[in-house]
Nucleic acid binder design. Structure first.
Lengths: 247, 247
DNA sequence: CTCGTCAGATGGTCATGACAATCTGACAGC
DNA sequence: GCTGTCAGATTGTCATGACCATCTGACGAG
């Protein structure tokens, strides 16, 4: 159960913080299976000595991995590698990224793209005053040949400059991030209802078929509302996967 | 924009860590509106001096609030209170707690409660070998007079001792926590489908009505799978509210 | 008037040292 | 044999000191 020395030499000239170098290396050792679940790490003092670091720095590296659910610490006992399972973090990703990660080859058709005065609901969600304008984007997303989702998104024009042709190629979130906006937190609401006639037509479903609805407000790291989205998905083709942690 | 001194004296005899005392007090000042969004805090050195603390301790308090989304720090600039919005953390709570928090007066009817050999799906989800047994619980939850949800849960018998009458009064998660198990992380999958006849009858809906489905596997802090749940909700009455953060 | 440079302010990282709280296991006493 | 106590191990908390990285704004050159 005990552990020797990880074959790691920290690079003090690197701009990457030392604690982060150590954390990444440890994470790699765990993910690769070199440190299987249940492995007991040496104590903090010894680890710090082995790497030529101070204890606070070593602690910080371990803390980072504890927060991410890879390690467990117990006072008086020690630090252990946790059972693997699904330890993916909660992600603020877009459907486009999700699909591409799953190898599904997403395709997007832009139904409409315009600049307009926000509706009351949108203005309220984004905290916009009078005179503001938003991009209103309506897209139909396919996975392979099958229509999957109708997405309506609203982004204040003053925050980012958008173009229709870019949206067809990359996800909305990537464009927002590229504009230097730091997406940090989002509130989502997931519900369900039956398909209306127009929606059913677009999605190749029958009227009354079960749909998933999702509305989301995304905020950047200063607390500004950046995007409001109202999406519907074919329940027969899509589920939301998420990981929750206690705080 | 600048700030004076918070009227706070830390209690060094308390078992509550100093950084946490400070964090809680700051949080209270922010939540109460005494520090409205945009308020700029004094720099770390000054704050630490004012409270008679060291800078690392003061930093840790601020760090705690930054992680929770209440503050933003920018190097070279300072620390500010973030726009309020919904800054609730991602929670691993139960429907029972959610409803009670919303003042809805939940009621639970136990449809069945037994100890059985787990099905293949359940054994796989919980990582159980042969010979293990689980509690199989099937409950119907009401909000006021309306049926809301059918919940099927499975918990290994070796982890906790459950009784039917307790379940009617309190949430399953509270019972698990009371048994000294430290719920830490859960993976959920949310989807939708049409109601089948038997389900529709129990939920007072028509067959074919849209339902939300949720399956969840919850793990404790050592990575052990503790609970598997498969729930269905009336989409007309329930939505999942959640907050996502980037990591 | 515009742009680049530079100094000050502020958070980010790291080291060293110390003591407290908690868990485990061994040992003594009953 | 059982139980309670105590010592050792290990993480948790806190203080002090130092230097680095980044941002803002003022000032001066053009």
């Amino acid at each position: 159960m005990a552990e020797g020395i990880p074959q790691l030499v920290v690079d003090r000239t690197s701009p990457v913080p030392l604690y982060f170098q150590v954390a990444q290396h440890l994470e790699q050792l765990i993910e690769s299976g070199a440190y299987p679940p249940g492995t007991r790490l040496d104590n903090e003092i010894m680890l710090a000595d082995q790497l030529g670091l101070s204890r606070p720095t070593m602690r910080r590296a371990i803390e980072y991995l504890v927060d991410r659910g890879l390690l467990v610490r117990k006072r008086g006992v020690g630090t252990q590698v946790v059972q693997p399972k699904v330890r993916r973090p909660v992600e603020l990703s877009s459907l486009y990224d999700d699909l591409r990660a799953a190898g599904k080859e997403p395709r997007t058709e832009i139904l409409s793209f315009e600049v307009q005065q926000p509706s009351e609901v949108v203005a309220e969600a984004l905290g916009l005053g009078g005179g503001s304008e938003v991009y209103a984007i309506r897209r139909l997303r396919y996975t392979g040949d099958e229509p999957l989702s109708i997405m309506s998104n609203f982004v204040p024009t003053e925050l980012v400059r958008l173009q229709a042709d870019e949206l067809a190629e990359t996800g909305l979130y990537a464009l927002i991030r590229n504009a230097g906006i730091n997406l940090k937190i989002a509130t989502q609401s997931i519900g369900g209802r039956a398909a209306r006639a127009a929606e059913a037509r677009l999605l190749a479903e029958s009227p009354g078929a079960p749909l998933l609805t999702m509305t989301r407000i995304a905020y950047d790291d200063t607390g500004r509302a950046v995007e409001y989205g109202s999406h519907i998905y074919r329940a027969s083709l899509y589920t939301f996967e998420l990981t929750l942690t206690t705080t």
